[in-house]
Nucleic acid binder design. Structure first.
Lengths: 228, 228
DNA sequence: AGAGATTATGTTGCATGCATCAGCTCGTCA
DNA sequence: TGACGAGCTGATGCATGCAACATAATCTCT
């Protein structure tokens, strides 16, 4: 198998061009480039002290990820998902995570169950301590554990791409640890875990889909989300 | 069957390099390159009378699609999915198409229903006439109509990538119009359509998933499918 | 003869230069 | 004044050259 490296979103990409790709991504997501802003190859090549060739390759990847739009013979521009795209992506996320939860439940895993149980304990602690950041990290870990535990590399791959696209929406990140969602979220996680422990793959899938749908509603009904 | 649907949709793949990308893909899939065979940039550049630069870009795309494997500083090699990957891809296919059928049922569309009804009529005709090729094309169209009718571009995008990867498995193509599946397949299609007409998105999703699963079993139990 | 070191080779990775093209500026003319 | 068009500018798209590296082949020494 090709040597891959899992980014924080779990996307498997070739290891050899990760540094530059990540740096370009980070630069664009850093906030200095508002949506629609041009991202010229020469600027990036000067910024990172490389030639245009590797920059071009990185931009093509980012285009594939949906972060930028390359208009031939014109230039590359930062692209932010519209609200409609966010809705579409969440529908996919619901489907992906539901599938993963179902597959995991069918496997009847031991290791993952222990990990998830420990995760819920720590989530309760973080919630009690009001540590929103740690809580968000644990939520992320919970979902990630289930995705990887589904034992389906292609699923993890597509899911990684999906999350990359979603991550570009800054508002999604901002509401990730929304206080109002914490109690419900942990409760839903617990339900999902119970279903997995019971090897009820049908119930696990349904529970996970409900959970993801509820989370997405939280983001999409947020007044700060633009309406385009 | 070419990936024309994705080009018409103007998806992630930029239009301007589709010709070269398609030609390279077609060349590799043509059969002259057995799995594991090296695909050097210079060879392709001479073959298509372009420089290595656009070839490199095309190969990167194909790597992303899973057709080739690029080993840094070594070379590019044809890559055929393993049986395990086929299983994984079919699990995803099931999930994608189920989601699409559900979304379409929820929309309660008029146009798609008419198209699908006509498709089933023609499928019956093709089956009666023993025209396996036409039947396979109609099956493809049936699924495609549902995917596009789901009105979710991101879904169509991911589905397109998925089908690209599946298409690389020559055996999948070979069993596409398997005679033993025809009657059952049409019957399952009809069930899916009925659910959509009833706006039963839950039932439509379940029916479609059952159908895709049954189709995948047909391929995966095929003795010709390698067991690696 | 065999094992390790060494050269040879073929490939990629990247830098650079030039042609091409989209979009804009500005001048011209009705 | 306003519209039209030729050039201008900046960017991409691609060709080419060179260096670096992985791998294979060869050589050397024991």
């Amino acid at each position: 198998m090709q040597q891959t490296f899992s980014t924080e979103q779990g996307l498997a990409v070739p290891v050899h061009d990760l540094p530059l790709l990540d740096r370009v991504r980070a630069l664009i997501l850093g906030g200095d480039f508002p949506p629609g802003a041009p991202v010229s190859e020469v600027f990036l090549s000067q910024e990172f002290d490389v030639s245009r060739t590797p920059i071009r390759e990185a931009l093509k990847q980012l285009q594939h990820e949906g972060l930028v739009e390359i208009r031939p013979k014109v230039g590359t521009f930062v692209r932010e998902p519209t609200r409609r795209e966010i809705v579409e992506l969440f529908q996919l996320k619901e489907s992906f995570e539901g599938l993963a939860a179902g597959l995991l439940a069918r496997r009847g895993p031991v290791r993952e169950i222990a990990v998830l149980e420990r995760n819920l304990e720590e989530s309760d602690e973080a919630a009690a301590a009001g540590d929103a950041e740690r809580y968000a990290a644990l939520v992320h870990e919970f979902h990630q554990t289930i995705i990887l535990g589904a034992d389906n590399n292609k699923l993890a791959e597509h899911y990684g791409r999906l999350m990359n696209q979603l991550a570009y929406h800054r508002l999604v990140l901002r509401t990730a640890g929304h206080p109002g969602r914490i109690i419900a979220s942990t409760s839903e996680h617990r339900t999902v875990l119970e279903m997995i422990k019971d090897k009820d793959h049908f119930g696990a899938e349904a529970a996970m889909r409900n959970h993801v749908y509820a989370s997405s509603r939280e983001v999409l009904t947020d007044s700060r989300t633009r309406n385009d």
